[in-house]
C-alpha cells in the first residue's frame, strides 16, 4: 500500500483511496485480508482513529467487510464496483478539467484528439 499524503484532501479519504487503488491493481485481491488499522497507523504515522475512519468509509461502501476477530477483507465484486464508480468520476475529474485547461491554453478540439492518439501510441 502506497500513500504519499498531500494537503489537498483529508487523510482518511486518502487512506480509503489508496486501498481502492491497490484493489484495482490486484495488490489486494478479493476475499483477501488487508492490513489492520494498527499497521496502517504505524506505517503512515497517523492516528489509528483516522485509519479506521478511512476503512469504515469503505465498509459503508461495501468494498471492505469485517470478519469479527480476524480482520478486514476485500468484498467480492469490490474491484468491479470501484471500476464503475471511477468511470463515473472520470469525466468530471479528467475530461472536464482537460477541456477547461485546453481553453485556457487555446488548444483546439482536433489538437486534443491528436494528443490522445499520440499518447495511446506511447503507452502501447
Amino acid at each position: 500500500m502506497k500513500v504519499s499524503f498531500d494537503n489537498e484532501k483529508s487523510i482518511y479519504i486518502q487512506i480509503a483511496e489508496a486501498i481502492k487503488d491497490d484493489i484495482l491493481k490486484d495488490i489486494f485481491e478479493e476475499e483477501t485480508q488487508i492490513p489492520s488499522t494498527t499497521q496502517m497507523s504505524v506505517s503512515y504515522r497517523i492516528n489509528p482513529a483516522t485509519a479506521a475512519k478511512g476503512v469504515n468509509m469503505l465498509v459503508d461502501e461495501g468494498i471492505i467487510y469485517k470478519k469479527r476477530g480476524i480482520g478486514m477483507f476485500v468484498a467480492s465484486g469490490a474491484k468491479e464496483d470501484i471500476r464503475n464508480s471511477r468511470k463515473n468520476e472520470f469525466f468530471d475529474k479528467y475530461i472536464a478539467a482537460m477541456i477547461e485547461e485546453a481553453q485556457k491554453l487555446g488548444i483546439s478540439r482536433e489538437d486534443i484528439i491528436d494528443m490522445i492518439k499520440g499518447g495511446e501510441k506511447k503507452h502501447g
Binding site: V42, S43, N47
Partner: peptide, 10 residues
C-alpha cells in the same frame, strides 16, 4: 519515536 509511539498506543 512516532512509529513506536503509535505501535505502543495500539
Amino acid at each position: 519515536f512516532y512509529r513506536i509511539f503509535l505501535d505502543n498506543f495500539a
